[in-house]
Design a protein around this nucleic acid. Structure first.
Lengths: 139, 139
DNA sequence: CTACTATTTTGAATATGTTTCAAAGAACAA
DNA sequence: TTGTTCTTTGAAACATATTCAAAATAGTAG
């Protein structure tokens, strides 16, 4: 999600309404590479929108996922994170500080999935997660 | 975890006690390829051990993970699954029926991770998850 | 076999993240 | 301006996992 206007048009084209809350959430996400959780988004917004609720945050995040403008990152058990950068890439979780980094395909390629394997299992999606200690935590 | 006796010896060698609950949990896991959740294990045991508690289940599963006899499978958001088959392999989740299948490395290889990438991020672990519709659900 | 000690189990309470719900509010088309 | 439909809200409910202190037990030593 690199372009707010495109997302707004997409919402409109599906008959969805452009509310201040949705705009604010989109603004928090636009170009955001920190893989925020629902709580992260909430905390970024609660000062500007003191009545915004988690229900709205969760619902909007879900909507954006359905529109293909956002991806869930489930690298951390029991806490969904979200990624507005939807091109294929991997993720790395620092198990000490909890930071998530992208690992681009140039550094680690997607594992090749033969068509017959794809068919056999009915694969429609995949993800690769890495765990470790980030440079700052390695000391 | 293909051999209960080895796990028992490992527990003993760490000064951990062999309790009926631990034995029962190990028996449920031994050779189990269904990737059970804590609840699955609980339900398998509650009839034979009417007083067994989730606290015990969770704690024992954690202990077995620490011993390297069990692996967490976090393919399903917000629900840990466990896998006693600890050799490297991938996992597939059917998004309709929730079943988890193994995908062996012969079908999809591990993506190659260059040493410099491993160092750069401090990678110590990785996993590959696949999502789709299993044959039974594809109809 | 008995007694001791450290470990383990238990049930209840708590924590955390997410979803549901119905009422109130707001967007937007006519 | 009005009406319809969608959206937001706060509270409650839900699901999974963890913590805690008291009671129970395994394993050891005598």
């Amino acid at each position: 999600m690199d372009n707010k206007e495109r997302v707004v048009e997409k919402l409109k084209s599906r008959g969805l309404k452009i509310t201040p809350q949705r705009l604010a959430i989109i603004e928090v996400l636009e170009g955001n590479r920190s893989h925020p959780s629902a709580e992260d988004v909430y905390k970024r917004l609660i000062e500007r929108y003191p009545t915004i609720s988690y229900a709205t945050i969760y619902k909007t995040l879900e909507t954006l996922c359905e529109l293909g403008e956002l991806m869930e990152v489930n690298i951390e058990p029991h806490k969904k994170r979200y990624d507005p950068f939807t091109e294929p890439h991997h993720h790395f979780l620092c198990v000490r500080c909890g930071k998530i980094d992208d690992i681009p395909l140039e550094e680690v390629p997607m594992p090749p999935v033969p068509d017959e394997v794809r068919d056999k299992y009915g694969i429609v999606g995949m993800c690769v997660y890495f765990y470790g200690l980030c440079p700052g935590c390695k000391n």
